[in-house]
Amino acid sequence: MINIIWLLLLVTGIVYAGWQGRIEVVTQGAISAAEGAVGLSFKLIGVMCLWLGIMKIAELAGIVRFFSRILSPIIYFLFPSVPKNHPAMGAIIMTLSANMLGLGNAVTPFGIKAMQELQKLNKEKDRASDAMCTLLALCTAGFTLIPATIIAIRSASGSTNPTEIVGATLIVSLGATMSVIIADRLCRIYYQIRARR
């Protein structure tokens, strides 16, 4: 599916630009995006180092283990393939908590760390495991208690009540998260049945 989407974006973009007589935007767009991607990776290095450093301290101090123990029933329900005391457990919890607290740039380092731990349990290294799909689904649904960015934009554009949408975002993202968990489960079962045949 990712191959088709990637190809569709490219093909429709280039063909439409050519048809509209604006083919030059393709070259400019491609080069500036490629450069931008490198810039973004470099920006990521800093926040990755910061949060992975903090996480190492939290790990050694037993903070991660403490939270793992409290939250393990939920994590065990969502990720049955992850063994109880595996380091992936702690990393998953850090990712989901950072997501909930709306710590934008901390979510990515923790999420990647969790994926790396899950990769150690994965048998086919280029293919996403069930647990990876579940974690990705939870992150893309992005359940956040306080959507700080949108509140800031709302007050910047002169809203009389910038936070009035918080209740709505909570309900909606909770709904989206639940439907993603259900869809993920159904897909997992479907793939397991298909693999057995």
Binding site: M1, I2, I5, L44, T108, G111, I112, M115, Q116, L118, Q119, K125, D126, R127, A128, M132, C133, L135, L136, A137, C139, T140, A141, V172, S173, G175, A176, T177, S179, V180, A183, D184, C187, R188, Y191
Partner: peptide, 27 residues
Amino acid sequence: LTVYFGAIGISKPRYSVFVGLLGDLVG
């Protein structure tokens, strides 16, 4: 999807693209 799976070299995301987009649609 790009960042998380890119970091560990996953090129076959399986059904996670579909599930992610479904979440967006529900949202």
